[in-house]
Amino acid sequence: MTRIIVITSGKGGVGKTTTSAAFAMGLALEGYKTAVIDFDVGLRNLDLVMGCERRVVYDFVNVINKEARLNQALIRDKRTENLYILPASQTKDKEALTMEGVEAVLGELADTFDYIVCDSPAGIEHGAFMAMYFADEAIVVTNPEISSVRDSDRILGLLASKTKRAAENRSPIKEHLLLTRYSPDRVMKGEMLSVKDIQEILSIPLLGVIPESEAVLTASNQGVPVIANRNSDAGLAYQDCVARFLGEEIEMRFIDPKKKGLLSKFFGSN
């Protein structure tokens, strides 16, 4: 049974695409056949983060408009078996994502894929709405910043009311909170909202916490999802998230400040 996961947030720049790339690759590495779709028509970026931008020939809108077959538009990831990318159109209007068209593509993918990861655009307009409409599960990406938390709350309201599951009165979308750009040091100093604060406000189950990490920018510079970097805190944190998503019980890491050695304490360096 195929599961459709939307990666959403409301606010832009919080890490939806980074998370979509990492999560899709993580699921594929666990052996699940996974497709990741860029819903950000007009501002496609997932292909860049996944490092396949030069292999884009056809896109999501071409498939919807029947200008290309799904198999022609899907890009197979060269590093990971089981992982396929469906890029967004860079030129078309976002209204090109019709409800029937999106449903047909998802339906066709469901024949062969275990997971479909939908990378939502920012905002609450048509593209974001299409990305969430058919979802079974939602990963709400949030920064420890008031505007991001507020937008996430707004998105949770939409997930509960404006999706196919809501329209058909089926069991609601399963919601997961993913906190990104977290700085335990700043939380300890009282400069940043804590995991607990944000969970209290949004009151949905916590999937994981990704620490603020240089590895994220390095990974996107290179076009390699950060989860592939097994030496980075962010990469390990994403691996934990995928494992938790698949039902494993794993303790949260990277939510407490790093313990400093006596020397670095003394000299005050990091």
Binding site: I146, V149, D153, G157, G190, I201
Partner: peptide, 19 residues
Amino acid sequence: RRSAEVAKERLSILIARDQ
């Protein structure tokens, strides 16, 4: 008052009103 506390208080009020 630490800024995170202020943020939490503002957010709690705001989100209750939004809802």
